[in-house]
């Protein structure tokens, strides 16, 4: 255990990078999820086709390969992102493409009646999406989104393979210096487990917060009169 104590400050700095990457990429995940998810629901082929292609590429290939590719191959085309940015981009796009399918699936599964009522009220497609379908879908999206976030957290460990000094990278390094393989790897397991557990609790909290409770129904926001959408 000596090595763990001795290298604790470094491991903590690694943990900082792990958390930073997780937070930044989860923001990107949400954005990419809604962009691809909604784009794939579009009636226009020039919107849903490109989104489909991107989603299939990111879901069809292995994340580790994408990480290596963004790190070692993309710069050859003149796109030279700093390592951390490349990391966030890869994790964000990859996670976003999975989460985008959740967005699409949940919105698609809303009862037809909701759309029909909204049309009857004279709402355009965008307003329908923004004011009716998306708000209704969020509670159903949260549990699978929580899983995506936990996967994202776990996937940050893969960044250690491309020299990003996250928790896993620091641990490997401490192991290389001290040879205390057992203590260091077991500590890693515990830390990651604790983190995903906390993330799970956070998701549960969000689920309660955003559940379609009577309270939120009791205070409906008034719709502005619209003419064929925004």
């Amino acid at each position: 255990m000596g090595a763990v104590v001795e290298y604790a400050p470094l491991l903590l700095r690694g943990l900082g990078i792990t958390l930073l990457v997780t937070v930044l990429s989860s923001i990107l995940v949400v954005v990419v999820a809604f962009v691809t998810g909604l784009a794939r629901l579009s009636r226009h082929w020039f919107v849903h086709w490109p989104a489909t292609v991107i989603v299939e590429i990111f879901r069809g290939t292995s994340l580790v390969i994408q990480i290596f590719w963004f790190f070692y191959a993309l710069p050859l085309f003149g796109i030279n992102l700093v390592p951390l940015a490349a990391a966030v981009l890869t994790l964000g796009l990859n996670g976003g493409c999975y989460a985008g399918e959740i967005v699409r699936g949940v919105i698609k599964s809303r009862p037809k009646g909701q759309t029909e009522v909204a049309i009857a009220l004279g709402m355009g497609p965008w307003l329908r999406m923004r004011r009716v379908l998306i708000p209704q879908s969020i509670p159903a999206m949260l549990p699978p989104f929580g899983n995506v976030m936990i996967d994202l957290l776990k996937n940050t460990s893969l960044l250690s393979l491309v020299t990003i000094a996250d928790l896993t990278f620091r641990a490997q390094w401490a192991r290389s210096k001290t040879g205390e393989t057992v203590a260091i790897f077991l500590t890693l397991l515990v830390i990651y487990f604790a983190l995903s557990w906390l993330l799970g609790l956070f998701t549960k909290w969000l689920e309660r917060r955003f559940s379609l409770s009577r309270r939120s129904v009791a205070r409906p926001r008034r719709l502005q009169p619209v003419m064929g959408g925004e």
């Binding site: 936990i150 250690s160 896993t168 393989t181 057992v182 790897f185 077991l186 487990f193 995903s196 557990w197």
Partner: peptide, 22 residues
């Protein structure tokens, strides 16, 4: 179930590969 789902596959692989031989 919780533990297997809550820890990265990479670390699990490292543990199996480096720790078990000890």
């Amino acid at each position: 179930v919780q533990f297997m789902r809550g820890t990265p596959l990479l670390i699990q692989a490292y543990v199996a590969f480096f720790v078990l031989p000890q």
